[in-house]
Amino acid sequence: MNALFNRTRAFLGPEMAGPGFALLAVIVFFSLASPQFLSRATFGSVAFQLPELGLLTLAMLLPVLTGGLNLAITFTANIAGLTAAWVLKSNGGVDAGPFAFFMACLLAIGVGAASGLVMGLVIAYTRAHPILVSLSMMIFLRGLGEFLTRGGDISGFPAFIQPLGHGSILGLPIPLLIFIICVLIWHLLLTRTKLGFNTYMIGSNIEATRYSGINTRRVQVLVYTLSGAMCAIAGIIMMARFNSVRVGHGESYLLITVLACFLGGVNPFGGFGRVIPVFVALVVLQLLSSGLNLIGANQHLATAVWGILLIAVMVLRFSAGRLKFLQRIKG
């Protein structure tokens, strides 16, 4: 029993306290405030909204763990979406076949990864600050996307890709399933692979890691490349969901993904943070916005409440740290 408890705790990690507490608080509060909260409808809306923000947050998570940031995620997703749209378009648009779609996805992921690769190379080899590198990449990709689309939408895709955005298997939305698979892959990557191990190490001290014989440049390049590839998956899901691609779709998610990471207990300086608490934090954010929706508020109020929640968690963490410190002094 005790062993099971310890295993669970090791799986969840100490980062779980903040998001876990917030999850409970949100569920209790909205169940009391609105009788419809604990219902299929709420589950449905959360399940369909979670994946886009969630996939982008996964893309943000890896760079944050290395002590960096990837501000280009949303536009990388857009550009990858554009790539897929272009492949579909040039293969017959609505009449494009599954193979064309497969190629479209492959190429989109390739383009997303390429944008990450460039950032990774610049960051690893010039040691420029990731905020700056990804910021300029963001401005570049936004410009590129607007240049290619002249600010308009691209639509007209084959009908069979729609389920990717709207369909369900066994009552579970397909985008949610894809997201959960990605969460598990990221969890596996971070806890069970050398790359994940080294991601945490360089997040805490890149020079000491290099002295230990780790190819830190390779780790950084891979981290940003994977981040870019994950953006591409988000871009494909967005394409299927909106049945169109527009540069600027999901732009407002950018800072929310950072917020979700911090809410999920990721250390802002890097080196610490787990996937599962971040996942819970994302659920909390979506429940909050669905709950607020139910009691008559709109998405904008939800955005504000997200900000307040982040501050509340940081303040609680600060107070808890202070309490521990005082206890240690007394003990």
């Binding site: 191990f197 080294n198 945490y200 190490m201 805490s204 001290n205 020079e207 000491a208 890691t209 002295y211 230990s212 014989g213 780790i214 080196g271 610490f272």
Partner: peptide
């Protein structure tokens, strides 16, 4: 390394991870 604090060990990370990193 002569500089254990900033080059020899990754101080914030765990004992186990530091021991196996190389």
């Amino acid at each position: 390394s002569e500089d254990r604090l900033s080059l020899g060990l990754v101080q914030p990370q765990s004992i186990a991870d530091n021991l196996v990193v190389a």
